[in-house]
């Protein structure tokens, strides 16, 4: 392959600048003692202080984290079992049918997920609030976990399970001591991805959250609709750091997931 030309380098540089400029613009003005995003008057940390002294905001932040952790834990449990079930489905047609159903929520636009869940919750009588938000987040995270775990399961050789069974392992032992350890990197990658999806979600939550309950994205949306508040800037700087941490965590797990390909796996 040819090397990167000067023109190519310049082009990439411009794209990188455009991609990052708005993010750093936000973070830069989070330190502005003037109240606007247009003229920088002086350095201050007061907007960060405002974030941490606002109890309402702290509660919302905690809601968001609790929903994210709980939903991704539960989704991981259901998704891992589901993925194992899909792999061991005997009927090929059935397997691809289940897989297609699995992927529907991944490709569906958020508005449709949100709107249809809103109808669902209203119909079966789930009160809009913490429960509906948590259930929705579990629901849209499950297929993500399945997708992350499936390749690891497919990579696993049948003979591993055969060997365990020959050596007298029960079904339970096979699951907990053979399969789960083998697919662990996939499980962690799935969990991380579910976590970031949950933390990031706005549209679905916006539909199914009632009046009393709010997550960070919904709160930011209503703040942003009211206009510019540098509290949002301070929040975005904090979120940027957390996101960066999560991305690095996710990538280190998924790298490990693809690197640890033992000799037994594959063909």
């Amino acid at each position: 392959m040819g090397k990167l030309s000067k023109k190519g380098k310049a082009y990439l540089a411009v794209v990188f600048i455009i991609l990052y400029a708005p993010i750093f613009y936000l973070i830069f003005y989070s330190f502005n003692s003037g109240g606007t995003m247009s003229s920088f008057e002086g350095f201050t940390l007061e907007h960060y202080g405002a974030v941490f002294s606002d109890t309402r905001l702290i509660i919302i932040l905690m809601n968001t984290v609790i929903v994210a952790l709980l939903s991704s834990l539960i989704a991981t449990a259901i998704g891992v079992l589901g993925a194992i079930g899909i792999v061991f489905l005997r009927n090929r047609k059935m397997r691809s049918a289940v897989l297609s159903l699995n992927n529907i929520l991944i490709v569906s636009p958020d508005v449709i997920i949100g709107a249809s869940f809103l109808i669902l919750f209203t119909m079966i009588g789930v009160k809009l609030g913490f429960a509906s938000v948590l259930i929705s987040h579990i629901a849209f995270s499950i297929p993500i976990v399945v997708i992350m775990v499936l390749p690891k399961l497919q990579e696993m050789s049948d003979s591993l399970i055969d060997a365990a069974a020959d050596l007298g392992a029960s079904k339970r032992d096979i699951l907990t001591r053979v399969i789960i350890p083998f697919i662990k990197p996939g499980i962690f990658a799935g969990f991380f991805l579910a976590l970031t999806y949950s933390l990031d979600d706005f549209a679905v939550t916006f539909f199914v959250t009632g009046n009393g309950f709010s997550t960070l994205s919904v709160e930011i949306y209503s703040m942003a609709r009211a206009g510019i508040t540098l509290t949002i800037n301070a929040l975005s700087a904090l979120i940027f750091i957390v996101t960066l941490g999560l991305v690095i965590g996710y990538y280190s797990f998924s790298q490990r997931a693809s690197r640890n390909t033992p000799g037994t796996g594959g063909l």
Partner: peptide, 24 residues
Amino acid sequence: IIIPSWINLLLKTYAFIGIFGLYG
């Protein structure tokens, strides 16, 4: 390149309210 896609959509959109604002 991918990292910005993980930053919340709302925040990126909000940034442009400032950038494209009348005095931005």
